[in-house]
């Protein structure tokens, strides 16, 4: 092959020239065990492949939309807000959410206190509500710095906490899962619950951002 022809092939053909190969790492013992148990359960008719597919779909459907509905309800319904703060598990059951075997702890942002959540040990997160955690939530630098210098981390997220406010960090290290109830933004007094729910972001429920309103 002439050099010219070779260059032409490379210009139009972007793989690195290696044949297709299986370069995945070998499965972990736990993965092999999971596959074996899953196949046995399906073979014995205890569950079906479709049950598993649906469970994954349900898990992937969780996220800020579901969390936003809970937050918006708390903003417009004082009884619900009280219940969410005092017995979170029971309150979110209204939304079809089952927190077991963990328990939900909802912490409320106010004019005096800003809450943020981290899991220094691993990546504990309110998955039944918010789904899978963002990649940065699992990173060592977030986990180490959130407890050590929360105000600096918050500023890096674009969230400057005024000096008059207390910052309270929650290390989600054991059996509770934390959801921040952000402050309702100004200028939304006549907004419907549905409109409010759309304002609420994932990061505001982790506590690294505030919810922005129409005047922010």
């Amino acid at each position: 092959m002439s050099d010219q022809h070779h260059d032409l092939v490379h210009a139009t053909h972007t793989h690195d020239g290696k044949p297709i190969q299986n370069d995945d790492r070998p499965p972990l013992e736990a993965e092999t065990l999971e596959t074996a148990i899953r196949e046995l359960l399906i073979e014995k008719g205890v569950i079906s492949s479709d049950d598993i597919r649906r469970a994954i779909e349900t898990m992937d459907d969780r996220g800020e939309a579901l969390g936003g509905k809970i937050v918006a309800r708390a903003w417009v319904d004082e009884d619900f807000r009280q219940r969410l703060l005092s017995e979170g598990d029971a309150a979110v059951r209204d939304f079809g959410i089952d927190m077991r075997p963990t328990e939900l702890c909802v912490v409320e942002n106010t004019d005096e206190v800003h809450n943020m959540v981290v899991c220094t040990l691993c990546s504990c997160y309110p998955r039944p509500i918010l789904g899978l955690p963002p990649v940065w939530y699992k990173r060592r630098d977030y986990r180490a710095r959130a407890v050590r210098e929360p105000r600096a981390i918050l500023a890096e997220f674009g969230t400057t906490i005024p000096e008059r406010k207390q910052v309270r960090v929650h290390d989600s290290n054991a059996d509770l899962r934390y959801l921040v109830l952000p402050q309702r933004p100004a200028g939304t007094d006549d907004w419907s619950e549905e409109q409010l729910a759309e304002l609420v972001t994932r990061d505001s429920m982790i506590g690294v951002a505030d919810v922005r309103g129409p005047t922010d």
Binding site: V147, E149, P150, R151, A152, E163, K165, Q166, V167, R168, V169, H170, D171, N173, A174, D175, L176
Partner: peptide, 14 residues
């Protein structure tokens, strides 16, 4: 620690 004296941290301990 660089912050307000009232800043706090809450964690679960057995």
């Amino acid at each position: 620690y660089d912050g307000k004296p009232e800043d706090s941290l809450e964690i679960e301990i057995y």
